[in-house]
Design a protein around this nucleic acid. Structure first.
Lengths: 142, 142
DNA sequence: GTATTAATGCAAGTGACTTGCATCTTGACG
DNA sequence: CGTCAAGATGCAAGTCACTTGCATTAATAC
């Protein structure tokens, strides 16, 4: 997925292609790895040429972009939501390990829980814990 | 672990056994399943005989109780932290499934990711997604 | 070009926590 | 026991990540 495709996806879903949305998409496609609303604000603030995004606009567009499949929510439970491009280095099914101290995020290419902790150990992480969480729609809400 | 043991653990770690802490422990040991700071506040408010806990006190004691091993943090990423008794029905290694709509939490007794989604399907959940997250201390912080 | 309706941006609100600070209480010591 | 210093508490106010209300602006259909 590139910016043009993302724009097309928005159009297909009858959302308007505004100046702000285009700039937001540009900022998003420049991001390496997971980003937060604040990251996007910061990225626009540093570009002196134009006015920065309004945080409200960011917060309203991120769920929209998620809904149409441009980005995916990818939370690390720091109290701040993060997103990644739906297709990019982070596109395939994978998980992360987050350092308890520096909060550095590292991507993992494999996905079997028990074996994983051993591999993480070999990668230099100690004191490893994991959290696995499922979401779904239960029968009652189905 | 029971209340007396929890009290002892606190004492061992040179924390004072105050009236409020004792009441908090009582409230916590009455909880079934994961609880939040708000749950504890509510539980004290409903007992008309004594004044309810101060939320600040709850927020200051929960991390302490966690530190000494009385409770474990168990987040469902709803934006609200939850805890469970370190040893209780929820003590062994397990995970949860959270309904996307009603946020009901159900405990799972097994832990292999791929097989799990099938089982969840049989349990009546649809549209299942999972999030697996590791935390550890990286070599740099080690 | 014009009208309709979505999108934007400011301001103010919310919810979950955190911090500051004065007051109170515990538990060690005399 | 009584005293007292440090830890614990509770009110008030602050912070952080978001959300909502509403008037203004601008993108698209015609």
């Amino acid at each position: 997925m590139n910016i043009d495709q993302a724009t097309e996806v928005l159009q297909m879903a009858s959302h308007r292609i505004t100046r702000t949305r285009k700039q937001l998409l540009q900022a998003i496609f420049k991001m390496r790895g997971p980003f937060s609303a604040g990251d996007l604000l910061a990225s626009s603030a540093s570009r002196s040429s134009r006015q920065p995004f309004d945080l409200v606009t960011i917060y309203r567009n991120l769920p929209l972009f998620e809904e149409v499949g441009i980005i995916c929510r990818s939370d690390f439970s720091n109290g701040t939501s993060h997103f990644v491009l739906a297709s990019g280095a982070h596109a395939h099914h994978h998980h992360h390990i987050v350092c308890r101290d520096c909060h550095k995020v590292e991507a993992l290419d494999f996905c079997i829980v028990d074996a994983q902790e051993k591999i993480l150990n070999q990668m230099g992480f100690s004191n490893i814990e994991h959290r696995l969480e499922f979401t779904g729609t239960c029968r009652a809400c189905g």
